[in-house]
Amino acid sequence: MNNTPQSDPVLDIRNLFIAYEPERYAVKDVSASVKRNRITAIMGPSGCGKSTLLRAMNRLHELYPNIQTKGDILLEGQSIFSMSVIELRRRVGMVFQRPNPFPNMTIYENVVAGFSLNDIRLKKNQRDEIVENALRNVALWDEVKESLFRKGTFLSGGQQQRLCVARAIAFNPDVLLLDEPTSALDPVATSKIEDLLGELKKKYTLVLVTHNMSQAARISDESMFMYLGELVESGPTGTLFTTPKDPRTEAYLTGKFG
């Protein structure tokens, strides 16, 4: 399925626990690794902790002081908890469930928002280049090149979501986290995003949360199945879908619950 030579883990999750309230874990003792230049899908029924796990990977949980995290996550061998959160989030980009371009910014400004919001000054030609590259990478350039200075919120939902991907990859991150990026989109926009993810994995490592099994089957290389906060099973998507080892995975895949 994948011919890239490297397949060492980019992210290594070790005995991770996450609790929203003391002693009530939304993620229980999860250990897993995310391989380079692959799409890793995290599946599971609603409330199984898949988004919670994803949001730990860029320490977004730290915005909410009541959330407690135990365990460790290594990014290229270094604990993410020992890095500055700013560096971490530059290296681990994120795309959210609903398209969320900054409504006060133009399309152009949205793409370079990561730089302007971090006070990284770029020359105009550098900025132009980043904007064009990022928008080309998300296959949005041809659609918006005439309207770069209109507000990003004028775009359709699918275009907005691709803009958000462009914003995340403008920084050239190592990893891109995607939290159900197509759940608010129609089927046509969804298939465009899926095609795009297939392209993006050549450059980046992608972690995709989805409740849509067929999406995971279509586009992911590796899959993790979570249930009630536990990582039930993980492995190559083909194997996991055809010969699941755990009865719970099989039950989920055959539509018995979730």
């Binding site: 860029n58 977004l60 915005l63 959160v85 700013i86 560096e87 971490l88 989030r89 530059r90 980009g93 994120m94 959210f96 469930q97 609903r98 969320n100 371009p101 900054f102 409504p103 006060n104 928002a113 990561g114 302007s116 919001l117 971090n118 006070d119 958000c164 914003r167 995340a168 920084f171």
Partner: peptide
């Protein structure tokens, strides 16, 4: 302001004070 706008800013590594004066204030201007 939707919470996702704030999170989008933070996910880009934006420091807190910048999120306030480059995102929160302009968006709610």
């Amino acid at each position: 302001i939707p919470i996702s706008i704030r999170e989008a800013a933070f996910a880009l590594g934006t420091p807190y004070y910048k999120m306030i004066y480059k995102i929160l204030i302009p968006v709610s201007f």
